[in-house]
Design a protein around this nucleic acid. Structure first.
Length: 195
DNA sequence: CTTTGGATCGTCT
DNA sequence: GACGATCCAAAGG
């Protein structure tokens, strides 16, 4: 997508990202669940209390990837939105697998005792999709427009849903009531029990 | 199917 | 020193 696609408010960009395709090499999936985080206007955002080393990417130009580490073992990825300096972002929460399923399974099975991963669990969850696509600290700041680290978001002609599913955001303890989570209604790859 | 608790460490106070 | 924008396995129905 062009840079301008990301330049708007995260609340506008989030639902428009639904049904776009996240691509890394031979691996790709359709975005079916996202959450908006609105920087200084959002107590749940990592950027709410101003710039730090971790959230620096969010304060940069739109169209880049903000990757953060959490729970001592997981990576999560956001598309940075809004004008340069405005720390808005859209958390990518779930994909529907399109290509490269075998590579995703390999990336998702852990260590020696790795067991089979069901298709349903491959990339439905913010940390799962990062693991499946090999996204980690090295991809923080990647440019999704230029694809400088092999990560792009493209339009394959599928429009966003006319009426996306809407709810409060998952796992946040601040402002959890704000309806800033969006998903493709009925899609089996949306995370959790909501659909 | 649902519930529960453990893993594990970078980041900020 | 406390706490996650989470996931998984184990145990119980």
């Amino acid at each position: 997508m062009p840079r301008g696609f990301y330049a708007g408010d995260a609340l506008e960009v989030a639902p428009r990202l639904l049904n776009k395709v996240l691509v890394r090499g031979g691996r790709s999936g359709r975005i079916v669940e996202v959450e908006a985080y609105r920087g200084s206007q959002d107590p749940a955002s990592h950027a709410f209390r101003g710039p730090t080393r971790r959230n620096a990417t969010m304060f940069g130009p739109p169209g880049r990837l903000y990757v953060y580490f959490t729970y001592g073992m997981h990576w999560c990825a956001n598309a940075v939105c809004g004008p340069d300096g405005d720390a808005q972002a859209v958390l990518l929460r779930a994909l529907a697998p399109l290509t490269g399923l075998d590579d995703m399974r390999i990336a998702r099975r852990g260590g020696v005792s790795g067991r089979a991963v069901r298709d349903r669990d491959l990339i439905s969850g913010p940390a799962r999709l990062c693991q499946a696509l090999g996204v980690d600290r090295a991809d923080d700041g990647a440019d999704l427009v230029r694809g400088d680290r092999g990560l792009r978001i493209v339009d394959d002609g599928t429009p966003p849903p006319e009426e996306p599913g809407v709810s409060g955001r998952v796992g946040v303890s601040q402002a959890g009531d704000l309806p800033w989570r969006f998903w493709v209604p009925g899609d089996p790859y949306v995370s959790g029990s909501t659909r």
